[in-house]
Design a protein around this nucleic acid. Structure first.
Lengths: 200, 200, 200, 200
DNA sequence: CATGAATGAGATTTCATTCAT
DNA sequence: CATGAATGAAATCTCATTCAT
C-alpha cells in the first residue's frame, strides 16, 4: 500500500514539475502563479502544497531534475558510440532541444533566476559543472582514442563547447530566422576546429 | 530656462535608467520595486513616474538605450582601425563587458524578459538585428579588404560571432571560474577560424 | 456539492452588494475603499476580488440589481390591485424608500456616477427606461379601464411621474424638514391632476 | 495698487471657480485633479493653492457662489414682473439651465457631494433654504396680489416647486430623450394646478 | 506671486499560502 | 489526501500639497 502511494506521489510530483517547466518557460517563474501550474495538471490550487513546500521549492526541484536528466543523457550518449561521435551527436541533440520552445525557454529562465537567487544559482552551477565534467570526460576519452588532437586542456575544451551550446540557445531567442537544425554544419565545423586543430 | 530644465530632466532620466539597470541586473525586473530604483538615485518613490509612465516603460527605455549604445560602439569601432581588427577588438570589449556584473546581468535579464514580453521582444530583436547587421558590415569590409577568406555569407558569419558573444556572457554566469579576459585567445582563434578558413 | 457552493457564493455576492450599497450611499463610490466593503461583511480585504473582478464591477452589479429589483417591484404592484391604485401605491412606496438613507443615498450616488461613467450610465438609463416603460404600461391599463382621463401620452405621463419620484428623492437630501410620508397627499394630488385632468 | 491686485486676485479666483465648475460637472469632484482645474485656466499646477487652501475649499467656494447667484437671480426675477409670472419665468429659466451640461452636471455633483460631506451639506442646504424662501416669498406676493388661490402654505408650495425643479434636472440625466424646453407646457400646467386649484 | 518638480501617503489589486471541510 | 475559499502582505501608481527657484 505504501509503495503504491509513494509511486503515485512521485508521479504527481513529476507531473507538477512538467507543468511548472511549461509555465516557467512560457511566462517566467515570477509571472507563473502556483494556480497556473495546478491548472495544467488539473489539480486544485492548494494541492500543490502537499507536494512542494513553496513555489520556490518547485523551481529548485525543477533545476535539480534538469541536471539529473542532462547527466543521464551524457552518460547514455557516451555509451552508444565513440567519444568524438558522442560529442558531435550531443550538438545535434542540443540543436533539437534549442528549437523546442519549452526546453529553450526553460533554460533561459533558469539561468535568469540563477542570477538573482542564491539557491537556484547553487544548483544551476552544479549542473553546469557536471555537464562540463561530462564533456571533459568525453574529450579526454577521444584524446585517448586518438580521435582528436588539441592543445586545449579537456576542461578548457569543455568550457568552449558549453559556450557554443549556450550561444545556440541564445541565438534562437534573439533571432527569429535562426534555425538551429540548419546551422549544425557550422557548429560541427567549429567543434571540429576546436578539437582537431592545434595551437593558439 | 527651457534648456536647463530639459537638460536636468534628461539627466535625471539617465540617472534613473542607470539605477534601473543596476537593480534589474541584480534582482531582475519583476523582483525590483520601483521604490528600489528611486532609492538608488535618492528620489522619493512617486517621483519616478514623472519620468516614466510605468515600470514597464523604464524597462523598454533601458532596452532601447542598450541598443543605441551598442550601435554607437560598433560604429566607433569600425572607424578606428581596419575591419578585421575591429572585429577582434570587439571581442576584447565584449569580454570586458561580460565580466562586469551589471552589464552581464542586465543582458541576461533583458533576454529573459524578451521571452515573455512582446514589447521587450520587439526592441530586443531589433537591437540584435542591428548588432548583427553591424557585424556583417564589418565582415563584408574585411572581405573587400582581403583580410579574410570564408565561404560563410557575411550574415551567417555575423550570426556565429553573435553566438560566441552570447556564449561568453552565459559562461560568466554559469561558471564562477570562467574569466573572460583569460579566454580571449581561444575566442580570437575561433573567430579567426570562422573567418579565415574555408569550406564547411 | 456544487449547489451548496454556488448558493454560498451567491449569498456572499449579495452580502457584498448590500455592504457596497451601504458604503456607496454613505460615503460615495470613490471615497469608499474596497476594504471598507469587506469590513462590513467581515471579510478579509483581498477576498472581495473572488466575487468581483474590480471595484467598478461591484458598482455595475449594484446598478443592475437595483434595476432588477425595481422591475420586480413594479410587476408585483400591478398584479395586486387596479392600475391606478397601483400607481398611487407606488408613490407611497417611493416615499418610504426615499426616507431610507441607504436607498436614497444610493439612488443619488448612482445617478451621480452615471454622469461620469459610460458603463454606469448605460445601465442606469436602461433601468430608468424600464421603470418608465412599467409606469407607462400602468397608465395605459388605467386608461383602458377608464380609471383616468388625460391628453398626455402614456410615455409623457410616465416621464412626469418619474420626475416627481426624482423630485421627492432630491427633496429628502436638500431639505432636512421634508418628510416624504407627510407629503404623500400633495403628491397624490399632483398625480391625480396629471392623469385625471385634461388639456394643456 | 492694492486695489488692482485685489481685483486681479478676485478675477483669478472666479476664473478658477469657473474652471472647477466645468471639471466637477464633467468628471465629478473626486475624479477632478487640481492640476486639471489649473490647466483649464492656463495656470501652473501649484498656483491654485495661492487662491484656495485646499481642493475642498474650491468646492465649498463654488457651492457658495452657486447659492449667491441663485439668490440674485430670484431677486432680479421678482423685480421684473408680477410674482406669478416670475414663478412661471423661473421654470423657463430652470428648463434652460437643466439643458446645459455644465449647469446640470454641477447641480448633480454638488447634491451628491452634499450627501457625503458635512461642510458641503451645510452650504447646500442653506442654498436650498434660501431658494425655497425666495419661492415662498413670491408665492406669498402672488397670493396677496390675488393671482393665485391654493390651500398649500407658501412654504409647502415652495417645497413642491423645488421638487419639480429637481425632477427636471434628474430627468435630463436619466432620459436622453427628455428635452426640458419641450416639456415646459406640462411643467407650467403642474405649477398652475399646484397654485390655482384648491384643496387636497 | 508664478512655476512645476518633488514628496509620500494611500488605494486597488494580486497571489502564495493556509486550513476547514 | 483533495478542495477551493479565505487571508493579508506587498507592489504599482496617483495626486493633493509643498517649496525652492
Amino acid at each position: 500500500m505504501r509503495t503504491v502511494n509513494a509511486a503515485q506521489r512521485a508521479a504527481k510530483r513529476e507531473a507538477l514539475l512538467d507543468a511548472a517547466a511549461q509555465c516557467f518557460a512560457e511566462r517566467g517563474y515570477e509571472a507563473t502563479r502556483t494556480a497556473d501550474i495546478c491548472a495544467v495538471v488539473g489539480m486544485s490550487s492548494g494541492n500543490l502544497f502537499h507536494y512542494f513546500r513553496t513555489k520556490h521549492d518547485v523551481l529548485l526541484a525543477l533545476v535539480e531534475r534538469e541536471g539529473t536528466q542532462t547527466a543521464a543523457f551524457l552518460t547514455e550518449l557516451g555509451a552508444e558510440c565513440g567519444p568524438f561521435d558522442a560529442l558531435l551527436g550531443l550538438l545535434e541533440a542540443v540543436c533539437e532541444m534549442a528549437a523546442d520552445p519549452v526546453a529553450g525557454g526553460l533554460a533561459l529562465e533558469i539561468s535568469a533566476q540563477a542570477h538573482r537567487d542564491e539557491d537556484v544559482a547553487l544548483r544551476y552551477k552544479a549542473n553546469d559543472r557536471s555537464f562540463r565534467d561530462g564533456l571533459a570526460e568525453l574529450v579526454r576519452a577521444a584524446d585517448a582514442a586518438g580521435e582528436i588532437r588539441t592543445d586545449l586542456t579537456p576542461e578548457a575544451a569543455a568550457t568552449w563547447l558549453a559556450a557554443l551550446v549556450d550561444g545556440v540557445f541564445a541565438r534562437v531567442e534573439a533571432d527569429p530566422d535562426f534555425r538551429p537544425a540548419e546551422q549544425s554544419a557550422v557548429l560541427r565545423r567549429l567543434v571540429t576546429h576546436l578539437l582537431r586543430e592545434g595551437g593558439v
